[in-house]
Amino acid sequence: MSAQQRLNASPSPARRRKSWRLGRNSVIALPYGWLLLFFILPFAFVLKISLAEADMAIPPYTALVEWLDETTLTIQLTFSKYQLLLEDGLYLSAYLNSLKIAAISTIFCLLIGFPIALFIVSRPAHARFFWLAMVMLPFWTSMLLRVYAWIGILQSNGLLNTFLMNAGIINQPLVLLHTDLAVYLGIVYSYLPFMVLPLYAALEKLDPALLEASADLGARPAVSFFTVTLPLAVPGIIAGCLLVFVPAVGEFVIPALLGAPDTLMIGRVLWDEFFANRDWPMASAVAIVMLIVLVAPVMLVRARETATRDEA
């Protein structure tokens, strides 16, 4: 059937527009509905259960809304979990410690990742795939296994201690595993690819002519770096820092495997409240507060982005 015939055979424009609208809306509705149901709605339940009490039942929390008899409906909300969050110093220090660990790790990711991204951009185009693959490969392999690899290196009879003792640098094995240092090493190590990729994407767009112009005008390489390269990489830096910082705050696996038993990180506190104490309402309250702490910086960045886009 030729296109002309097909056009002639098609229904009237009005009906066609109507069916087009319907089709368009259903294409939007499928992913939209899925995300509303499985991404947004769950937060409502976290909020709801954070206002309940823990109970020896299945599921282990009290009902918020209950029919006392045929005519009386009671609603019981308790803010005791939030009160406990504020009063018990453990939770507060876990939040602060997570923010600190995530912030310092993000800075180190940036310091280590920036030269890698610059280096890849400075390669000829056909070689960039190889170097990008070198950075991507760890991203494609199990994070759990890569974190686990550090246990063998850092433990007291591990490779690093054996090496240092054989080299005569130390006499006694150092305590490296189950320390904060190990947590930093693990987080920077695991999240480095998430920093390099957005940096690479930003630097790739940088026009080398700008740096040549800057050099022609007498700027030393360091000056060019701070006045040309760095400002143009800002979108990549922001994206990379968000991709590292936000998940690192809630990180569970790395502090659980490499951290000390008293390395307080909020992701681990949530996990223990849920799995060890079976206190679902407390775990939910911890999650809600973490969400508020984390959503604020993301919203700020987004607002900034839209503002700069509107200016442009």
């Binding site: 769950p42 937060f43 991709l243 936000v246 809630g250 992701g267 949530l270 999650a287 993301v298």
Partner: peptide
Amino acid sequence: AAPLVMPEVITGLSLLLL
């Protein structure tokens, strides 16, 4: 965009409660 940065413990807990 949000699931890219959402801490896994929050995603896991919220889906379980759902």
